[in-house]
């Protein structure tokens, strides 16, 4: 099998037309997922069973099923239900972009909430006891003591999840979205040259991952600067 470099030169600019959509999927679902994760994590550690149980069930469901299946359920499954088709949320589910965002957000939210919980659990009890001794309220202790330390502790694992989310966005191509992977698959279908095109696509994802990794590393170093000598 010969390797045709001119194909790569033709294909890369076309694939890059999808980088905007890939980025939108990543940023929107990462931000919404983080907000969701904070809420779920607070429910999970609230100590009240009626908050903690639903959170645990949610986490179990979304960590326990493949994200491709979740995307298919949202895209193909929900429209089968009459009441969703007739409700005000239908415009969201009618649009494949909306479906992809919903599925990616729900999925990443489950993982990130557990990452954040890990951070919160990692905060030294002594610090919180010192806070109590100084007369801080529960809320003040959480905002001023727990949160900054927990964020620092959770950041490496969180960065890992963002990188994994970047690659999950490729699954949006299965529900008609023309993200980078969707465009690459269309080019393969026209040129019948899977090696050249998919290798170019893989390299683009690797470059994006490298950029993400470097930026997250910077944030980590910034937050952990008190530990550096």
């Amino acid at each position: 099998m010969s390797f045709d470099f001119t194909l790569i030169i033709d294909a890369v600019p076309k694939i890059l037309l999808g980088i905007g959509l890939t980025f939108q999927l990543l940023v929107v679902s990462a931000v919404l997922g983080l907000v969701l994760a904070i809420g779920i994590m607070l429910m999970r550690i609230s100590g009240k069973w009626y908050l903690s149980w639903p959170a645990q069930i949610y986490i179990y469901i979304f960590r326990g099923t493949p994200i491709l299946v979740q995307i298919f359920i949202v895209y193909y499954g929900f429209p089968q239900l009459e009441f969703i088709r007739e409700s005000f949320i239908w415009p969201l589910f009618r649009d494949p972009f909306g479906c992809a965002i919903v599925a990616l957000t729900l999925n990443t939210g489950a993982y990130v909430s557990e990452i954040l919980r890990g951070g919160v659990m990692g905060v030294d009890r002594g610090i919180l006891e010192a806070g109590t001794a100084l007369g801080l309220s529960v809320r003040q202790r959480f905002i001023h003591l727990t949160s900054p330390i927990a964020i620092r502790l959770a950041l490496p694992a969180y960065g890992n999840d963002v990188i994994s989310l970047l690659k999950s966005t490729a699954l949006a191509s299965t529900i008609t979205l023309a993200d980078m992977t969707g465009i690459a698959r269309t080019i393969v279908a026209q040129t019948f040259a899977p090696y050249e095109i998919f290798i170019s696509l893989a390299i683009i994802y690797m470059i994006l991952t490298w950029i993400l990794q470097k930026s997250l590393g910077r944030v980590e170093r910034h937050l952990g600067r008190y530990m550096q000598k």
Binding site: Y76, P79, R94, P96, T174, T176, A178, G182, T186
Partner: peptide
């Protein structure tokens, strides 16, 4: 143009109005 991976989803999405 909206591109699909198979023929069955075409009918589903035509009925759904996508």
């Amino acid at each position: 143009i909206v591109l699909y991976d198979g023929s069955e989803p075409l009918y589903l999405d035509l009925v759904n109005g996508r």
